[in-house]
Design a protein around this nucleic acid. Structure first.
Lengths: 148, 148
DNA sequence: ACAAAATCCCACTTTTTACCACTAATATTT
DNA sequence: AAATATTAGTGGTAAAAAGTGGGATTTTGT
Protein backbone atom coordinates (compact mmCIF):
# COMPACT_ATOMS: atom_id res chain seq x y z
CA UNK A 1 0.00 0.00 0.00
CA UNK A 2 1.75 3.12 -1.20
CA UNK A 3 0.78 6.35 0.46
CA UNK A 4 1.78 9.83 -0.61
CA UNK A 5 0.49 13.25 0.10
CA UNK A 6 0.51 13.01 3.88
CA UNK A 7 0.31 16.55 5.11
CA UNK A 8 -0.94 18.77 7.85
CA UNK A 9 0.25 19.80 11.27
CA UNK A 10 -1.71 18.69 14.32
CA UNK A 11 -1.55 18.72 18.08
CA UNK A 12 -2.27 15.66 20.15
CA UNK A 13 -1.52 14.58 23.69
CA UNK A 14 0.13 11.48 25.02
CA UNK A 15 -1.77 9.98 27.95
CA UNK A 16 -0.32 8.33 31.07
CA UNK A 17 -0.38 4.96 29.35
CA UNK A 18 1.71 6.09 26.44
CA UNK A 19 -1.20 6.23 24.03
CA UNK A 20 -1.75 9.06 21.60
CA UNK A 21 -4.60 9.78 19.25
CA UNK A 22 -3.72 9.95 15.59
CA UNK A 23 -5.18 13.20 14.29
CA UNK A 24 -8.32 12.39 12.33
CA UNK A 25 -7.03 13.55 8.95
CA UNK A 26 -3.92 11.42 9.17
CA UNK A 27 -5.94 8.51 10.46
CA UNK A 28 -8.19 8.65 7.43
CA UNK A 29 -5.21 8.39 5.15
CA UNK A 30 -3.47 5.66 7.15
CA UNK A 31 -6.33 3.45 8.27
CA UNK A 32 -5.99 -0.20 7.43
CA UNK A 33 -2.34 0.34 6.67
CA UNK A 34 0.43 -1.47 8.61
CA UNK A 35 2.66 1.09 10.26
CA UNK A 36 6.26 1.32 11.43
CA UNK A 37 7.48 3.72 14.09
CA UNK A 38 11.15 4.59 14.57
CA UNK A 39 13.52 7.32 15.65
CA UNK A 40 14.01 10.02 13.07
CA UNK A 41 16.81 12.37 12.25
CA UNK A 42 16.39 15.35 14.60
CA UNK A 43 14.70 14.73 17.93
CA UNK A 44 11.48 13.22 16.63
CA UNK A 45 9.80 9.97 15.70
CA UNK A 46 9.02 8.83 12.20
CA UNK A 47 5.77 7.06 11.46
CA UNK A 48 5.85 5.24 8.14
CA UNK A 49 3.44 3.12 6.19
CA UNK A 50 5.20 -0.24 6.16
CA UNK A 51 5.87 -0.23 2.41
CA UNK A 52 7.40 3.21 2.43
CA UNK A 53 9.61 2.23 5.32
CA UNK A 54 10.73 -0.84 3.42
CA UNK A 55 12.03 1.46 0.70
CA UNK A 56 14.05 3.48 3.20
CA UNK A 57 15.45 0.53 5.11
CA UNK A 58 16.50 -1.14 1.86
CA UNK A 59 18.58 1.93 1.02
CA UNK A 60 20.14 1.84 4.47
CA UNK A 61 20.99 -1.85 4.27
CA UNK A 62 22.25 -1.70 0.72
CA UNK A 63 25.65 -0.24 1.46
CA UNK A 64 25.84 -1.62 4.93
CA UNK A 65 28.68 -3.74 6.25
CA UNK A 66 29.91 -5.05 9.57
CA UNK A 67 33.23 -3.45 8.70
CA UNK A 68 31.87 0.07 8.20
CA UNK A 69 31.31 1.85 11.47
CA UNK A 70 29.21 4.55 9.84
CA UNK A 71 26.68 2.14 8.54
CA UNK A 72 26.58 0.33 11.87
CA UNK A 73 25.87 3.66 13.49
CA UNK A 74 22.97 4.36 11.15
CA UNK A 75 21.59 0.90 11.68
CA UNK A 76 21.67 1.25 15.45
CA UNK A 77 20.13 4.67 15.35
CA UNK A 78 17.42 4.23 12.70
CA UNK A 79 16.81 0.60 11.91
CA UNK A 80 17.07 -1.05 15.30
CA UNK A 81 14.46 1.01 17.14
CA UNK A 82 11.84 0.43 14.42
CA UNK A 83 8.71 -1.22 15.70
CA UNK A 84 5.47 -2.36 14.09
CA UNK A 85 2.40 -0.49 15.11
CA UNK A 86 -1.36 -0.83 15.06
CA UNK A 87 -4.12 1.75 15.35
CA UNK A 88 -6.52 0.76 18.16
CA UNK A 89 -10.31 0.99 18.15
CA UNK A 90 -10.24 4.58 19.31
CA UNK A 91 -7.75 5.65 16.67
CA UNK A 92 -4.78 5.77 19.02
CA UNK A 93 -1.31 4.30 18.74
CA UNK A 94 0.92 3.14 21.57
CA UNK A 95 4.38 4.67 21.73
CA UNK A 96 6.93 2.35 23.36
CA UNK A 97 8.47 4.00 26.39
CA UNK A 98 11.99 3.75 24.99
CA UNK A 99 10.91 5.84 22.01
CA UNK A 100 9.14 8.31 24.25
CA UNK A 101 12.34 8.75 26.19
CA UNK A 102 14.65 9.11 23.23
CA UNK A 103 12.43 11.80 21.72
CA UNK A 104 11.63 13.69 24.89
CA UNK A 105 7.92 13.11 24.44
CA UNK A 106 6.09 14.08 27.59
CA UNK A 107 2.49 15.09 26.96
CA UNK A 108 1.80 17.72 24.30
CA UNK A 109 2.96 16.51 20.90
CA UNK A 110 2.87 17.70 17.32
CA UNK A 111 2.24 15.54 14.26
CA UNK A 112 3.69 16.73 10.96
CA UNK A 113 2.71 15.15 7.67
CA UNK A 114 5.65 15.02 5.25
CA UNK A 115 4.33 13.43 2.07
CA UNK A 116 5.37 9.79 2.64
CA UNK A 117 5.67 9.78 6.42
CA UNK A 118 4.67 11.56 9.61
CA UNK A 119 6.92 13.11 12.22
CA UNK A 120 6.00 13.16 15.91
CA UNK A 121 7.63 15.81 18.08
CA UNK A 122 7.36 16.98 21.64
CA UNK A 123 5.58 20.31 21.20
CA UNK A 124 7.97 22.40 23.24
CA UNK A 125 11.04 20.88 21.59
CA UNK A 126 9.53 21.43 18.16
CA UNK A 127 8.83 25.09 18.77
CA UNK A 128 12.43 25.61 19.91
CA UNK A 129 13.70 23.70 16.90
CA UNK A 130 11.58 25.78 14.56
CA UNK A 131 12.86 29.03 16.01
CA UNK A 132 16.43 27.88 15.49
CA UNK A 133 15.62 27.08 11.84
CA UNK A 134 13.75 30.25 10.98
CA UNK A 135 16.70 32.15 9.53
CA UNK A 136 17.85 29.15 7.51
CA UNK A 137 14.36 28.78 6.13
CA UNK A 138 14.28 32.35 4.89
CA UNK A 139 17.60 31.80 3.15
CA UNK A 140 16.49 28.50 1.63
CA UNK A 141 13.30 30.14 0.43
CA UNK A 142 15.17 32.91 -1.36
CA UNK A 143 17.45 30.34 -2.95
CA UNK A 144 14.43 28.55 -4.34
CA UNK A 145 13.26 31.82 -5.86
CA UNK A 146 16.61 32.42 -7.50
CA UNK A 147 16.56 28.98 -9.11
CA UNK A 148 13.15 29.47 -10.72
CA UNK B 1 -9.02 28.56 -11.78
CA UNK B 2 -6.21 31.06 -12.15
CA UNK B 3 -6.50 34.26 -10.20
CA UNK B 4 -4.33 37.35 -10.48
CA UNK B 5 -4.67 40.94 -9.47
CA UNK B 6 -5.52 40.41 -5.82
CA UNK B 7 -4.88 43.70 -4.12
CA UNK B 8 -5.90 46.00 -1.34
CA UNK B 9 -5.43 46.20 2.40
CA UNK B 10 -8.33 45.47 4.73
CA UNK B 11 -9.09 45.06 8.40
CA UNK B 12 -11.14 42.22 9.75
CA UNK B 13 -11.61 40.61 13.15
CA UNK B 14 -11.27 37.04 14.26
CA UNK B 15 -14.14 35.88 16.48
CA UNK B 16 -13.89 33.58 19.48
CA UNK B 17 -14.41 30.55 17.29
CA UNK B 18 -11.52 31.33 15.00
CA UNK B 19 -13.70 32.56 12.16
CA UNK B 20 -12.89 35.65 10.18
CA UNK B 21 -14.81 37.46 7.48
CA UNK B 22 -13.07 37.71 4.14
CA UNK B 23 -13.16 41.36 3.12
CA UNK B 24 -15.86 41.78 0.49
CA UNK B 25 -13.56 42.79 -2.34
CA UNK B 26 -11.31 39.78 -1.89
CA UNK B 27 -14.32 37.55 -1.50
CA UNK B 28 -15.70 38.65 -4.85
CA UNK B 29 -12.47 37.63 -6.52
CA UNK B 30 -12.09 34.35 -4.64
CA UNK B 31 -15.67 33.08 -4.43
CA UNK B 32 -16.24 29.58 -5.72
CA UNK B 33 -12.51 29.00 -5.70
CA UNK B 34 -10.95 26.24 -3.53
CA UNK B 35 -8.47 27.83 -1.17
CA UNK B 36 -5.35 26.80 0.71
CA UNK B 37 -4.11 28.47 3.87
CA UNK B 38 -0.56 28.07 5.16
CA UNK B 39 2.19 29.77 7.10
CA UNK B 40 4.10 32.35 5.13
CA UNK B 41 7.63 33.61 5.36
CA UNK B 42 7.55 36.29 8.08
CA UNK B 43 4.94 36.03 10.81
CA UNK B 44 1.84 35.84 8.63
CA UNK B 45 -0.47 33.45 6.85
CA UNK B 46 -0.73 32.95 3.13
CA UNK B 47 -4.08 32.39 1.50
CA UNK B 48 -3.78 30.91 -1.96
CA UNK B 49 -6.20 29.81 -4.65
CA UNK B 50 -5.59 26.07 -4.78
CA UNK B 51 -4.12 26.10 -8.29
CA UNK B 52 -1.63 28.82 -7.49
CA UNK B 53 -0.56 26.96 -4.36
CA UNK B 54 -0.13 23.77 -6.36
CA UNK B 55 2.47 25.56 -8.43
CA UNK B 56 4.41 26.55 -5.32
CA UNK B 57 4.19 23.17 -3.61
CA UNK B 58 5.30 21.37 -6.75
CA UNK B 59 8.48 23.43 -6.76
CA UNK B 60 9.05 22.58 -3.11
CA UNK B 61 8.50 18.85 -3.57
CA UNK B 62 10.48 18.65 -6.77
CA UNK B 63 13.96 18.30 -5.32
CA UNK B 64 12.80 17.06 -1.97
CA UNK B 65 14.23 14.02 -0.25
CA UNK B 66 14.12 12.35 3.14
CA UNK B 67 17.91 12.52 3.09
CA UNK B 68 18.15 16.30 2.63
CA UNK B 69 17.64 18.21 5.83
CA UNK B 70 17.03 21.51 4.04
CA UNK B 71 14.13 20.20 2.05
CA UNK B 72 12.67 18.56 5.14
CA UNK B 73 12.90 21.89 6.92
CA UNK B 74 11.07 23.72 4.17
CA UNK B 75 8.42 21.02 4.01
CA UNK B 76 7.80 21.22 7.74
CA UNK B 77 7.60 24.95 7.79
CA UNK B 78 5.64 25.69 4.61
CA UNK B 79 4.04 22.60 3.15
CA UNK B 80 2.88 20.70 6.23
CA UNK B 81 0.85 23.50 7.79
CA UNK B 82 -1.12 23.95 4.56
CA UNK B 83 -4.80 23.24 4.94
CA UNK B 84 -7.73 23.28 2.56
CA UNK B 85 -10.26 25.94 3.22
CA UNK B 86 -13.81 26.80 2.32
CA UNK B 87 -15.70 30.07 2.51
CA UNK B 88 -18.82 29.53 4.62
CA UNK B 89 -22.32 30.80 3.90
CA UNK B 90 -21.57 34.09 5.60
CA UNK B 91 -18.33 34.71 3.74
CA UNK B 92 -16.05 33.69 6.59
CA UNK B 93 -13.13 31.29 6.74
CA UNK B 94 -12.04 29.21 9.73
CA UNK B 95 -8.43 29.60 10.79
CA UNK B 96 -7.11 26.45 12.50
CA UNK B 97 -5.91 27.24 16.00
CA UNK B 98 -2.37 26.04 15.30
CA UNK B 99 -2.11 28.63 12.53
CA UNK B 100 -3.55 31.30 14.77
CA UNK B 101 -0.90 30.52 17.34
CA UNK B 102 2.04 30.38 14.99
CA UNK B 103 1.12 33.74 13.50
CA UNK B 104 0.15 35.47 16.72
CA UNK B 105 -3.36 36.17 15.45
CA UNK B 106 -5.54 37.36 18.30
CA UNK B 107 -8.45 39.53 17.16
CA UNK B 108 -7.71 42.45 14.90
CA UNK B 109 -6.18 41.29 11.62
CA UNK B 110 -5.06 42.77 8.35
CA UNK B 111 -5.56 41.26 4.92
CA UNK B 112 -3.11 42.24 2.20
CA UNK B 113 -3.74 41.34 -1.42
CA UNK B 114 -0.51 40.43 -3.25
CA UNK B 115 -1.50 39.64 -6.83
CA UNK B 116 -1.72 35.83 -6.67
CA UNK B 117 -2.26 35.41 -2.93
CA UNK B 118 -3.37 37.15 0.23
CA UNK B 119 -1.43 37.67 3.43
CA UNK B 120 -3.13 37.68 6.82
CA UNK B 121 -1.36 39.42 9.70
CA UNK B 122 -2.12 40.24 13.27
CA UNK B 123 -2.68 44.00 13.09
CA UNK B 124 -0.34 44.94 15.89
CA UNK B 125 2.44 42.66 14.64
CA UNK B 126 2.03 44.02 11.14
CA UNK B 127 2.41 47.60 12.27
CA UNK B 128 5.58 46.69 14.15
CA UNK B 129 6.86 44.80 11.12
CA UNK B 130 6.20 47.79 8.90
CA UNK B 131 8.12 50.06 11.25
CA UNK B 132 11.09 47.69 11.26
CA UNK B 133 11.07 47.64 7.48
CA UNK B 134 10.99 51.41 7.38
CA UNK B 135 14.29 51.51 9.26
CA UNK B 136 15.84 49.02 6.87
CA UNK B 137 14.76 51.20 3.99
CA UNK B 138 16.38 54.25 5.53
CA UNK B 139 19.61 52.32 6.11
CA UNK B 140 19.62 51.07 2.55
CA UNK B 141 19.04 54.59 1.33
CA UNK B 142 22.01 55.96 3.27
CA UNK B 143 24.18 53.11 2.02
CA UNK B 144 23.32 54.08 -1.51
CA UNK B 145 24.45 57.63 -0.78
CA UNK B 146 27.77 56.49 0.69
CA UNK B 147 28.56 54.40 -2.34
CA UNK B 148 28.37 57.35 -4.73
C1' DA C 1 1.80 -17.94 41.53
C1' DC C 2 2.03 -13.12 41.75
C1' DA C 3 2.90 -8.34 40.58
C1' DA C 4 3.38 -5.24 36.89
C1' DA C 5 2.46 -3.92 32.59
C1' DA C 6 -0.01 -3.98 28.35
C1' DT C 7 -4.44 -4.33 25.92
C1' DC C 8 -9.26 -4.08 25.21
C1' DC C 9 -13.40 -1.92 25.69
C1' DC C 10 -16.79 1.30 27.29
C1' DA C 11 -18.50 5.85 28.64
C1' DC C 12 -17.90 10.59 29.03
C1' DT C 13 -16.33 15.38 27.61
C1' DT C 14 -14.79 18.68 24.56
C1' DT C 15 -14.34 20.60 20.15
C1' DT C 16 -15.79 21.31 15.65
C1' DT C 17 -18.96 22.27 12.13
C1' DA C 18 -23.15 23.51 9.81
C1' DC C 19 -26.87 26.22 10.18
C1' DC C 20 -29.88 29.90 11.62
C1' DA C 21 -31.18 34.47 13.28
C1' DC C 22 -30.29 39.02 13.90
C1' DT C 23 -28.22 43.89 13.44
C1' DA C 24 -25.90 47.38 10.77
C1' DA C 25 -24.77 49.55 6.64
C1' DT C 26 -25.48 50.49 1.85
C1' DA C 27 -28.07 50.78 -2.22
C1' DT C 28 -32.58 51.10 -4.77
C1' DT C 29 -37.10 52.54 -5.79
C1' DT C 30 -40.98 55.42 -5.70
C1' DA D 1 -36.63 62.05 1.12
C1' DA D 2 -38.91 57.95 2.92
C1' DA D 3 -39.53 53.31 2.47
C1' DT D 4 -37.79 49.10 1.01
C1' DA D 5 -34.58 45.82 -0.48
C1' DT D 6 -29.93 44.08 -0.50
C1' DT D 7 -25.42 43.19 1.10
C1' DA D 8 -22.11 43.14 5.02
C1' DG D 9 -20.99 41.73 9.43
C1' DT D 10 -21.80 39.27 14.18
C1' DG D 11 -23.27 36.04 17.40
C1' DG D 12 -25.29 31.89 18.99
C1' DT D 13 -27.41 26.92 18.96
C1' DA D 14 -27.48 22.12 18.19
C1' DA D 15 -25.90 17.85 16.08
C1' DA D 16 -21.92 15.33 14.96
C1' DA D 17 -17.21 14.20 15.26
C1' DA D 18 -13.02 14.15 17.76
C1' DG D 19 -10.62 13.43 21.80
C1' DT D 20 -9.95 11.71 26.82
C1' DG D 21 -9.99 8.89 30.87
C1' DG D 22 -10.26 4.85 33.26
C1' DG D 23 -11.71 0.17 34.77
C1' DA D 24 -11.56 -4.77 33.71
C1' DT D 25 -9.24 -8.48 31.54
C1' DT D 26 -5.25 -10.59 29.57
C1' DT D 27 -0.46 -11.09 29.04
C1' DT D 28 4.40 -10.95 30.56
C1' DG D 29 8.17 -11.61 33.39
C1' DT D 30 10.17 -13.26 37.77
Amino acid sequence: MEIRGLSGQFNSTLDEKGRILLPAKLRDQLKGCPLVLTRGIDKCLWLFPEDEWKGVSDVLLENSSLFKSKSQMIQRRLLAPATDLAIDKNGRIKIPSSLQRSTGLVRDCIFIGLDDHVEIWDEELYIEFEERCEEDIKDAWEELGNQG
